[in-house]
């Protein structure tokens, strides 16, 4: 019932019911703004072709929880079926691959928290710490890892989500301080890729245009392609990074601006993102496409 009300509120399919929800929302927001002063009216339109200011270059990549929040309003996914924690191996290898894996592991954590699966979250919390040791960042990550494990034990899901976000941010900030901006970007890419794969898997099993629209993210793909294109050093030419770069180009070709994303597109996005994850996160599955989750 809650899901249906959310759909009505957000997507406006039942105007009268929607009006009621808007009224409630207005009351809630009104209470929060009692002490606020209304801002001077914003211009209704700005001329982007002649903008007198400056474009900020930094891109903030949404965490998987943001897109999961919408999917939760549109559907009732079986989040537990989306958890797919790979077998634990020794976290060794190129730092670029470790950074991607770290991001995807945090993405896995966001799936597990949607599922409210405390056992999996605690396992992920421990693996996050092990991986951070391999990256030389254990001191910064340990407090977050412990908080994740404790919050999962207390079923404090909001706290788990906050700590997963904080973990990723701490790792990225620390990498940037060490002038490892490339690695920082790869952490974001790993998380985005894992989130994209699970979302496309769910949508593929229960397609709707509203859900497919969530994949309309050409700006983020362009950002990640730029990140890989600008990589320097031996990792830039590793087969894994080259393969992921090719995968991003394929995703970009599907998610073209002003194009509706079809069911077939979603299936392709699921399979391509899966193949990309198999470069460093999942075991490669020969002659199999996608995953079957409900």
């Amino acid at each position: 019932m809650v899901m249906i009300e959310n759909v009505i509120r957000i997507f406006g399919r039942a105007p009268l019911a929607g009006l009621g929800a808007v009224f409630v929302a207005t009351l809630i927001f009104g209470a929060g703004l009692l002490n606020a002063e209304n801002a001077p009216n914003a211009p209704e339109r700005i001329d982007l072709s002649n903008f007198p200011g400056e474009m900020v270059e930094k891109v903030v990549v949404p965490i998987p929880a943001e897109i999961f929040a919408v999917l939760e309003k549109l559907d009732e996914p079986d989040w537990n079926s989306g958890i797919e924690l790979p077998e634990q191996g020794d976290p060794v290898g190129e730092r670029a691959i470790l950074a991607l894996t770290f991001g995807s592991l945090v993405g896995e954590g966001f799936i597990a928290v949607q599922a409210k699966n405390a056992d999996e979250i605690q396992t992920i919390g421990k693996r996050v710490l092990a991986l951070s040791e391999a990256l030389g960042l254990a001191a910064a990550v340990r407090p977050h890892s412990l908080s994740i494990i404790e919050a999962a034990g207390n079923s404090d899901w909001k706290k788990v989500r906050d700590e997963l976000d904080a973990t990723q941010q701490t790792v990225r900030t620390t990498m940037e301080k060490l002038r490892d901006d490339e690695l920082s970007g790869l952490v974001s890419l790993g998380g985005w890729l894992r989130g994209t794969n699970v979302v496309t898997s769910f949508i593929s099993n229960s397609f709707s245009e509203d859900k497919a629209e969530l994949l309309n993210q050409p700006g983020l793909i362009e950002h990640f392609r730029g990140l890989l294109d600008s990589m320097k050093g031996p990792s830039a030419n590793s087969p894994q990074i080259r393969s992921i770069s090719t995968g991003l180009a394929r995703l970009e070709a599907i998610i073209a601006p002003s194009t509706e994303i079809s069911e077939e597109d979603i299936n392709q996005l699921r399979d391509i993102s899966r193949t990309m994850l198999e470069e460093y996160y999942f075991e490669k599955k020969a002659a199999e496409t996608g995953t079957s989750i409900n």
Partner: peptide, 13 residues
């Protein structure tokens, strides 16, 4: 001096 920040938003949030 105005600043512009690009950001991805999701319908439904």
């Amino acid at each position: 001096k105005p600043l512009l920040v690009k950001h991805q938003l999701f319908r439904g949030n």
